[in-house]
C-alpha cells in the first residue's frame, strides 16, 4: 500500500543544512495501522508529508497506492490527495467558515459525489462520531475533542485508501486522545483504510498494529 524507499530530506537553516530524514525505507500493508513514534523535532511530520506527497524527498522514492508520487504534476497530486488520501491534523484544522456537516461533506463534494450519497454519508458519519446534534455548529463552538472527531470524519468521509494523522492527539488529554484514536482505528478498519499516524505519547502506541521509531533522522522498528 505504502512503499517508502531510501528517502532522505534536509532543510537549510541559515548556512547550516540539517538532515532530517536519512535514508529511510519501510513498507505498510493494506489495512495496517502504523504508529510513527519520535521526540518533537525528530522528523515525524516531514516523513508523513513525504509519504502523502505534500513534500518531496531530496532522494528516494515514495509509492503510495501504486503511484510514484515523484511523477505527479501539481494537478495530478491534487487529484491523488483528493481521492486516495485523508489527513488529520494536530488541532483538527476544520474550515472555520463551514459547519460540522459541511466540513465532513467537503471532500465528498470535491470528489463529485451525488447530493443523496453525500447526505446519507454525512448522516452516517455524524452518527458514528456522535455529533448529530452539532451538525449545524461552526468549529468555533466545538471542544478540542469534538473538533478532532469531526476532523477524523472529514478525513475518512470519501473512504480514502490511506489516512495520515499528524499527532492527532497532541492537543488532547490522554482519555480524549484515546477515544479519537479509537475512532480512527474503528472507522479505518470499517472501510479498510491504511493508517499512518505520528505521536510522542507512549500510551497511544498500543493502538497501532506496528510502531516505527524515528531517532536522529533514522528509522528503527
Amino acid at each position: 500500500m505504502l512503499h517508502v524507499n531510501n528517502i532522505s530530506k534536509a532543510f537549510a537553516t541559515g548556512r547550516r543544512r540539517i538532515k532530517v530524514l536519512k535514508d529511510i525505507s519501510f513498507y505498510v500493508e493494506k489495512g495496517e495501522i502504523v504508529a510513527l513514534k519520535g521526540k518533537s523535532g525528530s522528523g515525524k511530520t516531514t516523513l508523513l508529508n513525504c509519504c502523502c506527497g505534500l513534500e518531496s524527498p531530496d532522494s528516494g522514492k515514495v509509492i503510495c497506492s501504486g503511484i510514484d508520487l515523484k511523477t505527479l504534476s501539481a494537478g495530478q497530486l491534487s487529484r491523488f490527495l483528493r481521492t486516495k488520501t485523508g489527513f488529520v491534523f494536530q488541532q483538527g484544522n476544520l474550515l472555520s467558515y463551514l459547519t460540522v456537516s459541511e466540513n465532513i461533506s467537503f471532500p465528498l463534494h470535491l470528489n463529485g459525489e451525488k447530493a443523496n450519497n453525500i447526505k446519507s454519508r454525512v448522516s452516517e458519519l455524524l452518527a458514528i462520531i456522535g455529533m448529530e446534534e452539532a451538525k449545524h455548529a461552526l468549529p468555533s463552538g466545538l471542544s478540542g475533542g469534538e473538533t478532532l472527531r469531526v476532523s477524523v470524519a472529514r478525513a475518512l468521509s470519501h473512504k480514502p485508501e490511506m489516512l495520515f494523522a499528524d499527532e492527532p492527539t497532541a492537543s488532547l488529554d490522554t482519555a480524549t486522545g484515546k477515544s479519537v484514536l479509537s475512532l480512527i482505528r474503528d472507522l479505518s478498519r470499517m472501510q479498510k483504510s491504511t493508517v499512518v499516524f505520528s505521536t510522542h505519547d507512549p500510551e497511544l502506541l498500543s493502538m497501532a498494529d506496528r510502531v516505527l521509531e524515528l531517532k536522529d533522522g533514522e528509522l528503527k522498528e
Binding site: A74, G75, R79, F80, F89
Partner: peptide, 16 residues
C-alpha cells in the same frame, strides 16, 4: 493561509 494549506491537503486543485 493555514486554511488554504488545509484545502490543498484535501486535494483542491490549483485551478479550483
Amino acid at each position: 493561509l493555514r486554511e488554504y494549506g488545509i484545502l490543498k491537503t484535501m486535494g483542491l486543485s490549483p485551478g479550483l
